[in-house]
């Protein structure tokens, strides 16, 4: 057994202060930037209307989560991105409702 210790000095929270650029979102998902453009086109991730160029796009944690989920649906279930968008919306609604029920003490985690 060998081991090494490294202290990370570059921990940032993905969010408004440290967003991901389009190429970084693509890289995090093992994809090309064209795939991120498709995500925007089908509405899986949303960018402000005024930012038409992918270079201007900024993504937060929720976008990364949806992009990763979409990638998995594509790969493991062979679904198209339009169908993935619908599945993700339904999934989001289920999670929101379950979280609300749990918060009210009406559902076990």
């Amino acid at each position: 057994m060998s081991s090494s210790t490294a202290t990370s000095t570059h921990a940032t929270t993905v969010g408004s202060a440290h967003p991901l650029a389009a190429h970084e979102l693509a890289h995090a998902c093992g994809a090309e930037i064209g795939w991120v453009i498709q995500l925007v086109e089908v509405g899986i991730v949303v960018v402000p209307e005024r930012t038409t160029s992918p270079e201007d796009w900024q993504f937060h944690s929720a976008d990364l989560q949806r992009a990763l989920e979409a990638r998995r649906l594509e790969r493991d279930f062979g679904v198209g991105l339009e169908a993935a968008a619908l599945i993700l919306d339904l999934q989001h609604e289920i999670r929101r409702l379950k979280a609300a029920l749990h918060a009210q003490g009406l559902l076990r985690p």
Binding site: A6, A11, T12, T13, V14
Partner: peptide, 24 residues
């Protein structure tokens, strides 16, 4: 043989569920 790599991660104050912390 097993090799361990230990990272010390400083989780910033104010994170919430579903957020991602990025270690460059």
């Amino acid at each position: 043989a097993f090799v361990n790599r230990t990272l010390s991660v400083k989780i910033p104050a104010g994170v919430h569920p579903g957020q991602f912390i990025r270690l460059a």
